[in-house]
């Protein structure tokens, strides 16, 4: 019985992940970093990392989940939560529908439970294709519900962050999601449970200034842009060009804000190891 459901869930995730394979190009794809042309199939085989320069292409949320979770273990949480239009912002509804149609996603975050190396956990993944991964109230709610689910079931939590920041069309209510998610993490942490935050390209603005920076352990993908203010704004403020590598994952590691920069090929294994190291965690 269980295995039939597991197979079905696996097929469902595989289908959604396939739709998420969105690196540009048909047979050939050009790496945006090194400019080299590669066979799309070769890039896909390398977990969407450029075989030439190691550039990590952005991943769709379901695609990411299919790479991280044990096959058949995926079970989505609060799939049907959508953004509302609390400020009646002109054109927002229409933009939501366009984003949904283009990405097949309901919102900029997907949350799920599953296992990694046989260990159960709650995983949230942000998707930068949907409104730049910006924080709507629905995103904040999904993340908070995932945190609360993990707290209730005493499970470790892993959040893959990717965000341009606030959802402008939701104004101040977007800002309040920072307080909401951070407060939920404080409660989660009091239970002695593990939270790993994985920063992927780009993690900026309100997400950086809330749950992205609050992990017990913070990992980052190579080259990911991580910061509060965006490079363009900083450049305007200080009126000079920014140093090479500024705000990249390696820079954040050097400045003490990231525990480890982990290439995508080692991410699953690293997460599995960290879950194993914290297995006895959790106050009862």
């Amino acid at each position: 019985m269980n295995s039939i459901f597991a197979k079905r869930r696996n097929r469902l995730l595989a289908m959604k992940a396939l739709r998420d394979n969105y690196i540009p190009g048909d047979r050939l794809t050009v790496c945006p970093k090194c400019g080299q042309e590669h066979q799309r199939g070769a890039v896909a085989k390398d977990l969407f990392v450029c075989p030439g320069c190691g550039y990590h292409f952005p991943l769709g949320a379901y695609h990411r989940l299919s790479m991280i979770l044990d096959s058949g273990s995926f079970r989505e949480l609060n799939e049907k939560l959508l953004a509302a239009d609390p400020l009646s912002f002109p054109g927002y509804r229409e933009k939501q529908r366009t984003a949904q149609r283009k990405t097949g996603l309901n919102e900029a975050a997907v949350t799920a439970t599953g296992t990694i190396g046989g260990r159960r956990c709650v995983v949230g993944v942000m998707d930068s294709r949907f409104f730049m991964g910006s924080m709507s109230a629905a995103v904040g709610e999904k993340i908070t519900l995932a945190i609360e689910y993990a707290a209730k079931n005493k499970l470790p939590l892993i959040l893959f962050c990717a965000s341009g920041g606030a959802r402008m069309q939701e104004g101040i209510l977007s800002l309040m999601q920072m307080a909401k998610t951070s407060a939920a993490l404080a409660r989660f942490s009091e239970k002695g449970l593990l939270y790993i935050s994985v920063l992927t390209d780009p993690t900026t603005g309100g997400v950086t200034a809330s749950f992205a920076s609050l992990g017990d352990i913070i990992l980052a993908e190579p080259g990911a842009l991580i910061g509060f203010a965006g490079p363009r704004v900083i450049q305007q403020t200080i009126g000079e060009t920014l140093p090479e590598g500024f705000q990249r994952a390696e820079y954040q590691e050097e400045h003490g804000f990231v525990d480890a920069v982990v290439p995508r090929s080692q991410l699953r294994e690293t997460l599995s190891r960290l879950l194993r190291l914290h297995e006895k965690g959790g106050r009862s």
Partner: peptide, 16 residues
């Protein structure tokens, strides 16, 4: 939004 502020973790400070 300055370089030094970013280098010393503006995002982390606010989050905390």
């Amino acid at each position: 939004p300055g370089l030094e502020a970013e280098a010393r973790g503006q995002g982390e400070a606010i989050a905390r």
